[in-house]
């Protein structure tokens, strides 16, 4: 585990210290740490990170809220499924970044188009993955519920919902990575702040060390999001973990 991080770091350090590449193109680890420190003391690091995280939280949060009831309804009711599955099947293959120009025309340059992009880019995958999870609820488990005197409503809320909870958390864990990419894409195109915007600015001034610093921050935060959802899973769904 340590090697997996340490070996690339050492290689990076070796390549940059041997002056194989101009350090304007490949800054050394030390330069990147200094860039990080600079961004921190200037206050950019905190502001940009907060701005990006905020957009992901709102956009993905909305997608999560919408996708759980729709995904479960599509999995549980054939009528809802046949109503929504074809359209979702097509729309989800339209690449979300292709919507950016339209979103800017409709929603302007503020927070709304960025949040909308993240929402659009994740909601359909969330829905389809949750729907699939519901389809895999064992039939015998539902029939048991009915022979114990359960009504359809009770089966939905007290059997299907808790059964798919681990799948829902896993779905979020996988798709939040997409939203983390989309926020950067949106900020690269047009933004006042955010880690993507910071990267564009660094490019303008040829500050590759700042670009590297932002990439590392993006990686670390993405990884932290992943870990926290794993932790949530362990906390709430002990039964589903071996």
């Amino acid at each position: 585990m340590v090697l997996s991080i340490a070996v690339p770091l050492v290689l990076w350090w070796l390549v940059s210290s041997l002056d194989l590449v101009n350090d304007k193109f490949l800054p050394s680890p030390l330069q990147v740490v200094q860039a990080l420190g600079r961004l921190w003391t200037d206050g950019f690091l905190l502001d940009d990170t907060a701005a990006s995280l905020m957009r992901v939280t709102v956009g993905f949060g909305l997608a999560a809220l919408v996708s759980v009831p729709i995904g479960i309804a599509m999995g549980a009711f054939a009528s809802v499924r046949s109503l929504l599955e074809p359209i979702i099947g097509v729309v989800r293959y339209m690449p979300p970044p292709a919507f950016i120009p339209l979103l800017i025309i409709y929603l302007g340059l503020g927070e709304a188009p960025k949040i909308a992009l993240i929402f659009m880019g994740t909601v359909f995958f969330n829905i389809l993955m949750i729907m699939d999870a519901v389809k895999f609820v064992p039939k015998a488990l539902l029939e048991t519920t009915y022979t114990l005197g359960g009504q359809r409503r009770q089966a939905l809320f007290q059997v299907i919902a808790p059964y798919v909870l681990p799948n829902i958390i896993d779905t979020f864990r996988i798709n939040i990575a997409t939203s983390w990419s989309l926020v950067v894409v949106a900020e690269l195109v047009a933004a006042e702040n955010g880690l993507g915007k910071r990267i564009v600015l660094a490019q303008k001034f040829f500050n590759t060390d700042e670009i590297f610093a932002c990439l590392i921050i993006l990686g670390v935060i993405g990884f932290a999001l992943d870990l926290s959802l794993r932790y949530l899973m362990r906390l709430t769904c002990k039964w589903a973990i071996d």
Partner: peptide, 19 residues
Amino acid sequence: TGPGSDRGMVFQSYTLYPW
């Protein structure tokens, strides 16, 4: 006319609620 708790059923597959 439909399932009910007056006719309890034990299935061959283990149908315990895992959570």
